[in-house]
Amino acid sequence: MNRVIDSRFFDQPGFPVLYCAWAEVFDKNEKGADVLEPNHALARLSEAADQVKSEESLSPEALATLERVACLYARDMPLQLVMEAEEALYA
C-alpha cells in the first residue's frame, strides 16, 4: 500500500522541532515499551515548545496548532517513514 504524506507542515517554522520531540515521546523499544521515561518525555516536550517560542514569532494559537499536529503526525507517522518519504522526494 502506498502512503501519501502531506509534508507542508514540515515547512512551517518550528514544526520540525516539535515533531522530533513528539516522535521521541512515541518512540518504542524492541519490547514495545516507550523509550523515554515519562518525566524525561515531558521535559523534552517542554524544551521543544520553549525553543520554538523563543525562536519563532508565533501566536499562542499558531503554536498550539503546530503542537497538536506535531503530536498527531508523530503518533501516526513514525520518524522512519518521514525519512523514507523525504528521501523519495529528493531522490
Binding site: A33, D34, C71
Partner: peptide
C-alpha cells in the same frame, strides 16, 4: 507508558 496518554484524542494538544 506516557505515550499511551498522548495517543488518546483527549490529550492530543501541547
Amino acid at each position: 507508558g506516557l505515550s499511551n496518554l498522548f495517543g488518546q484524542p483527549e490529550f492530543m494538544s501541547g
